[in-house]
Amino acid sequence: MNEQEREQIDSLIHGFLDGELNERQRTELKRLAQHNPVIRKELHALFRQKELLGALPIEKAPDGLKDEVLARLERRLILSSETAVPSSRIGRLHLVLRWTAAAAAMALLPLAILGLLVLQIVQPPEPAVGPAAVPVQEQTAEFLPDKTPSAPKEDTVLVLGNLKFLTDQPIAVNDSIKKAVVSHKLLPSASSERFEDHAVYRIQCPQGQMLSFMKTLESVWGLCSKQQFVLAGGDSSASRSVVVEGIRPDQMEELIRQTSPSRLLTAASHLERVNRRGLSDAAIRVPAEETGGGEKTLLPVEPRLAWEKEQTAEESSVSGGPVVVLVIEVRNLTEKK
C-alpha cells in the first residue's frame, strides 16, 4: 500500500466515523474492510475510541460561575467608563478659545521677534553679572511638583475627576444637575452630552462656585443607588486611578477644597481607604509621608479632619480660588423597553 492509497483509506475511515461518506464511499470502505484485516481492525479500534470519547461524562461548571462572571463584568464596566474625558466631549466654546489663542500667538510671534531686534539695536546689552542658569531655573520651577504649600493661583486649572451616579431615576437626577448649573450661572463654562444609557456633564468654574454647586447637588445623592468618584491616573504609567466608592457630598466638598493635584490625590486616596473599610471600621493610620508631618490617625466618623485642619488657612477664601473641573456622569439603571 503506497502513501497515496494510505491517505485515501484514512480519509474513508475518518469520513465513515464522522458520517461524512456518501453511499458509494461507504460501499468502497466496506469492500476494503472485508478483504483487508488490518483496515478492518483499524476501523473497529477507531470506532470504539470515538465511542468512548463521546461517552465521557460532561463535567459540570463550578457553582457560582454565573454570579462571578456578572460581578466581573460589572466591575470592568465601571472601570472602563471611568477613562479620561475625550476631547470630543470638551465644550465647543473651549475649543474655539484654544484655536483663537493659537492663532493670536502665531500672529504675534513675528511682531515679538521684530520688537526684540529693534530693542537690541536701540538699547545696547548690559554686561553679564551672573550665570545664565537663573532664568532657566525660574522657568523649570513651574513644572516641578509643589513640595511646599503655596497660595493657589487664580489661573490654575485643577481637574478634580469624575463623579459618577448610578440611578433608576435618571430624569430627576439630570433635572437636578441642570437646575444647579443654571442657578449657579455655570452655563457658559459647562457642557453636557447625552448617550443611550448615560449623560456626562463637564463643569468648569472657580473653586468657591464649585463648592456652592456641590451643596445644591446634595439632594441627588438620595436619588441614586450608587455614587463613586474616580481620580484618573496621570500620563505616567506609575500613576494609578483612585476610586472612592460610595462618596458622600461632604467628602466631595473636601476634594473640591484641595488646591493642588498632589493634595487632591492624597485626599482621594484617604477617602478611598476610608470608604472601602467602611465607616464603622477602626481608625485609619496615615503614614507621616502622606500627612507631611508626623503620623496621624483619621477617625472613621470624620475622616477628613486630620488633613483638613492643615489646609484651612489657605482654603479660607473659597469664593474664588483656582479654577476646577469636574465631570459628572449619570448612568441609567432602568431597563429599556
Partner: peptide, 30 residues
C-alpha cells in the same frame, strides 16, 4: 445587547457546562 444582566445570566447558564467541559478537556486543570 441592551444590557439586561438577567438575560446574560441565562445565556451563561445555558452554555457554562459545555464550555467548561471543553476547556477542561483542552487544558486538563479544573
Amino acid at each position: 445587547q441592551r444590557g439586561d444582566l438577567e438575560a446574560a445570566g441565562l445565556l451563561i447558564v445555558r452554555y457554562q457546562d459545555r464550555l467548561y467541559n471543553t476547556i477542561l478537556k483542552i487544558c486538563s486543570n479544573p
